[in-house]
Design a protein around this nucleic acid. Sequence first.
DNA 1: ACCTGAACACCGTTCAAGT
DNA 2: ACCTGAACACCGTTCAAGT
Lengths: 223, 223
Amino acid sequence: MTRRETLNRAKVAAAALALVDAEGIEALTMRRLAGELGVEAMSLYNHVKNKTDLLDTLAEQVFASVERADPGLPWADRLRITVGNLYREFSRHPAVSKTLVGDQANPTSEAALRPAEDILEALFQAGFDEKAARQALIAVHALVFGTLALSTSGYTTPPRPAVHGLDVFRRAVDPARLPHFARLVATTDADSDPTEDFDHALNLLITGLVAAAPNTGHGTRGL
Amino acid sequence: MTRRETLNRAKVAAAALALVDAEGIEALTMRRLAGELGVEAMSLYNHVKNKTDLLDTLAEQVFASVERADPGLPWADRLRITVGNLYREFSRHPAVSKTLVGDQANPTSEAALRPAEDILEALFQAGFDEKAARQALIAVHALVFGTLALSTSGYTTPPRPAVHGLDVFRRAVDPARLPHFARLVATTDADSDPTEDFDHALNLLITGLVAAAPNTGHGTRGL
DNA sequence: ACCTGAACACCGTTCAAGT
DNA sequence: ACCTGAACACCGTTCAAGT
């Protein structure tokens, strides 16, 4: 349809990202993507190894667009900002988050690992050892990608997608049997802001990290 | 192959869970599952509406098996235990976790929502309002399912599956470019215990929650 | 080097037909 | 009521053939 001059890997990746953003991951088939590029499905294999390679490239694109925090800030602020930027960037591409948690994509390029590297840098500066840093990294990743992946299904409202996740529950929940859940569902629409919810959850976690850190963010503290 | 007397919904669900536990979600096709039950694929449609219905049933089974916490405990302990039990049960069925975060399953039965109800009950007893309770519930769910989903791909070792996730990174990471990540990868095998890592992450979050809660778990505290 | 048509081995699901 | 064979409309991917 767009009938470009000649195809290359970057154009394939860009078209794929646009397609999943607009219509979700299930719209991304090799035949459909080829059609979008005015070409036959088999042409794509000249530019990507296979569909897994294509999905890895999508995730890499998003990781690479994550803004880095000012290295002059205290570690806790650097951590909060880096993770916030990671969340913000992936919240623009919720379908890509799902390929990560669904194990369909697993990018290992330097660009894809840069945010994790920055998070670890902050954690090591906080004085955590390897084990504690790994545990904190896992927690932070789980929070980012778990929140994004669950936001289009479960107990919250998605940032952008069309389907309102809570509608299912509003019909299904019996207040007599699940009173607290019903209370939550009944009051959710008014003040629901996924980004704010995420920031709050991240703050809870960082509160726990600051309490556990050998070093504070503002200089030294006796052990 | 098992050629039972007659098929029913429970038998289909049990066989499906056994299949995904043994061979992962990609092994669960209608034709394959039917073969496992000594029947043709189309027979399954007499007992489940479609594949989505089947996946919902799987998730429901796992949710329903989550043990409930002693209601006499303080809220923070109840929260920790309920979430820990949720993690433990789903860690036995990592493929089912992925259907939840991947939006392929979305169970809304009372049995499926019971753990969320218990978590909310603890949070409301802690004095959180609806908004804070929703934010905490999101954080806790993201932690559980995000950790489990990422454990078979990303930065940690899975509890059971065959593939060792870190091997990819061990080959790919350049210590000169990603020094902190390389440090993590180099030291990960020795003391890596996914359940312990999860417990630690959960404790970080609960530390943050206790600090933010209007009520303590052990009686009253002035506002 | 890049693109294509035909084909292969799969999917989930429908439908008419059997018992 | 439950099961089945054939078929439909898809998938990702291979391969030989074109330019």
